[in-house]
């Protein structure tokens, strides 16, 4: 027995034999309601953004170190791979932001009512699509 929580899995049969309780089905068995997808999406986008901070660090360091180094970053970010990374980064950032505001509302005790959390989940998805499109329309227009 490795984990102290395993002790909770111990039980006795009617014959008095000690057995492990059966586990309930795991994630892959259930269909994915929107709130479940958003919950894991918040974590995944958070981890993705942590990787994205490397891009921000590179950009700032290159700018601080010199013209040549900075031109390399700017060219990379303008390349197809760079644009793809920026697209993923901006979508992850906007998603984590919108979903994070939803979490902060819950911390205030707001939005737990039946239906309210589903409505806020749909609002998050809609806000992410609209805001990401808006950022890229403005971004490409300015470019």
């Amino acid at each position: 027995m490795q984990d102290v929580r395993d002790a909770l899995m111990l039980a006795r049969t009617s014959q008095g034999k000690v057995v492990r309780r059966p586990l309930s089905p795991h994630l892959q068995v259930y269909r994915w309601p929107i709130s479940m997808a958003l919950s894991i999406g918040h974590r995944i986008s958070g981890v993705g953004l942590a990787i994205g901070t490397l891009l921000m660090t590179w950009w700032l360091l290159a700018a601080a170190s010199g013209t040549g180094a900075f031109r390399v970053v700017q060219n990379f970010l303008g390349s197809p791979i760079g644009v793809l990374l920026l697209l993923g980064w901006s979508a992850a950032l906007i998603f984590h932001l919108a979903s994070g505001i939803r979490h902060l509302m819950w911390d205030l005790g707001v939005g737990f009512d039946d239906g309210a959390y589903r409505a806020s989940a749909r609002a998050v998805v809609a806000a992410v699509v609209v805001a990401t499109l808006l950022v890229w329309i403005v971004g490409l227009a300015v470019w």
């Binding site: 700018a63 013209t67 700017q74 994070g100 979490h103 902060l104 950022v135």
Partner: peptide
Amino acid sequence: TAVALVPLTLWFISAIISLESASRADVA
């Protein structure tokens, strides 16, 4: 930090957009 990052992130996104084709001197 989450609350602080709400306005800061919005500001950063707008700053990034305005610096898209910036030179090093523009960033400085």
